[in-house]
């Protein structure tokens, strides 16, 4: 399968202003050098605890936030990617050709009208359906707004498209002329999905879409996501802290800690055999709804450190039960150890 989205050394830092003159005293490293490749048609899961930067990553990738550094390549033909690779690896870093290619293909450099141009290709579904829908707008207007704003359809044609999309997400015409607060959580989430898919994006970021709904509705939404992915050929980035849901729907999963990816593998492989100590602790802590299964969960000590002052070397070493001397000094690289399973840990390599 071909690559749809690739990020290279993506960084998103927030400055911390302090002192009388409000100068930058520190930086919150929300996303710290993330390189991943999302393949076309797959559902890529991104898990981690709160504050690890996964939501920030999702929003930066679709350019709702401006990245501090790094590159984002969306649907770039492979020969161009090869050329960029060659130019970057050679000593010709500042060549005009590289700059030219970057300006054309690297989403991180887009500004102004070029940015509005790619909005059509990438969309997002938020976690809380109550706050992601304008309470003063009718459902009809909420869903048809993307069409009107992008200039794709108006009036009767727009209405037809809206109805088509409504049926696809499992709602009916009766729901058009209502306000969002008249619906249940699951239905509101469907409206949010309909809005996101109206302008035919290729890539959709799902930011914890099932966290605010009940267990019984969760299954409905997951079914919907899978059906829509097959139907419309979508690629998902499924961000969540709910590990059991991600296990069911994602093809590949990455684990994030303090802005860095620590492990990445096929879902089954990762859940069965996590290698990074943090991933091991994380997966062992999922409460299994079966009283006969006895697990010995790994309980981590301490709290997640603040992203303003991350520990030196491997950021996990203060809490790692298997930390070595080298972990305090050198940061481990995310290396592929076979079969697409990537780990960033000195224990492994």
């Amino acid at each position: 399968m071909s690559t749809l989205l690739e990020t290279r050394r993506l960084k998103k830092y927030y400055p911390v202003l302090g002192g009388v003159l409000r100068r930058k005293v520190a930086e919150i490293k929300a996303v710290d050098e993330v390189n991943i490749r999302i393949l076309k048609g797959e559902c890529f899961g991104l898990v981690g605890e709160s504050g690890c930067g996964k939501t920030t990553f999702g929003k930066t990738v679709i350019r709702l936030l401006d990245p501090t550094a790094g590159s984002i390549y969306l649907d770039v033909p492979s020969d161009i990617m090869e050329e960029i690779d060659k130019l970057e690896n050679s000593d010709d870093r500042d060549s005009r050709r590289l700059k030219e290619l970057r300006k054309k293909y690297d989403l991180a450099t887009y500004r102004g009208s070029m940015l509005s141009g790619i909005r059509k290709k990438m969309q997002i579904v938020y976690q809380d359906p109550t706050s992601s829908l304008n309470p003063r707008m009718l459902v009809k207007n909420i869903i048809s707004e993307p069409l009107i704003v992008q200039g794709l359809a108006k009036g009767q044609a727009a209405r037809k498209k809206v109805l088509e999309m409504l049926y696809k997400v499992g709602l009916t015409e009766r729901h058009l002329y209502r306000y969002p607060h008249e619906f249940s959580g699951g239905q509101r989430q469907r409206i949010a999905v309909a809005r996101a898919l109206m302008i035919d994006p290729e890539f959709v970021v799902l930011d914890e879409p099932t966290s605010s709904v009940d267990v019984s509705v969760r299954a409905q939404l997951l079914n919907l996501f899978q059906d829509l992915q097959k139907d419309l050929n979508l690629t998902y980035l499924f961000v969540s802290h709910d590990l059991s849901v991600v296990e069911c729907i994602a093809h590949r999963v990455a684990v994030m800690y303090l802005g860095k990816i620590v492990e990445l593998a096929q879902t089954e492989e990762l859940y069965k055999n996590p290698l990074h100590p943090y991933a091991q602790a994380l997966f062992s802590s999922i409460p299994i709804p079966d009283p006969t299964v006895q697990k010995r969960p790994i309980i981590l000590t301490g709290e997640v450190p603040s992203p303003v002052n991350p520990p030196s070397g491997c950021t996990f070493h203060p809490r790692c039960p298997k930390a070595m001397q080298i972990c305090t000094e050198k940061e481990p690289e995310l290396k592929d150890i076979g079969n697409g399973h990537m780990v960033a840990c000195h224990l492994i390599h």
């Binding site: 909005r119 997002i124 706050s131």
Partner: peptide, 12 residues
């Protein structure tokens, strides 16, 4: 609020 960001995401 989220819906403002969602509107920007759609290209408003």
């Amino acid at each position: 609020e989220d819906y403002v960001e969602a509107a920007k995401a759609v290209g408003c």
